[in-house]
């Protein structure tokens, strides 16, 4: 992320400390010069330009900014970009392949698991982290796994159904 400052003479901006980091995002390797205080969510949104990761609450409560870091769900509003150095990040933009949607994306559409869509990327990534370790979850498992993600539109019932839909599809794919 590059910031261009106005030239203000003696009070030079040159001493803003920068760190170089290398990371992988949705399979693509990237290098960035970042201020140490830059949040990972801002690196993803403003630096890489992937705006599917949303900022909801700034306090790690709502989960709209959930991404996977080395496969684990992380709230990217409370992780520093420098902490992502050397790690692998997956965002909502990395869920679908070139030709088809991820079953979670299909499931959310099929079961009306979203309304305004703002929480949806975080929900799907939290759900992916669950299904990666538990391919056959109960409704209770899903509710617990998503309890760090807030939705104000749906009342969750259809989100839970969406995840169970995706789990069933993934199981049938791996069985086939």
């Amino acid at each position: 992320m590059t910031t261009v400052y106005d030239d203000v003479g003696d009070q030079a901006a040159g001493d803003v400390p920068m760190r170089r980091i290398a990371f992988t995002i949705n399979g693509a390797r990237k290098i960035a010069e970042v201020e140490p205080r830059l949040l990972l969510a801002h690196l993803i949104r403003r630096g890489v330009g992937l705006t599917g990761t949303h900022m909801g609450c700034d306090t790690t409560n709502c989960g709209a900014c959930t991404v996977l870091v080395d496969g684990k769900p992380i709230k990217s509003c409370t992780m520093l970009a420098v902490q992502a150095d050397g790690h692998e990040i997956t965002t909502v933009e990395g869920l679908a392949s070139a030709s088809e949607l991820h079953p979670l994306q299909e499931g959310f559409r099929a079961e009306h698991g979203l309304q305004c869509g703002f929480c949806t990327p975080g929900m799907m990534l939290a759900a992916k982290a669950l299904l990666d370790v538990n391919p056959d979850p109960t409704e209770e498992d899903v509710r617990w796994a998503l309890s760090g993600n807030l939705c104000r539109c749906t009342g969750y019932q259809n989100i839970v159904k969406s995840v169970l839909w995706a789990a069933a599809k993934l199981r049938s794919q791996s069985a086939g």
Partner: peptide, 13 residues
């Protein structure tokens, strides 16, 4: 949904 599930919504931010 087609855009929201892909993270391709267009919110103000």
């Amino acid at each position: 949904d087609s855009r929201f599930i892909r993270g391709r919504g267009n919110y103000t931010d």
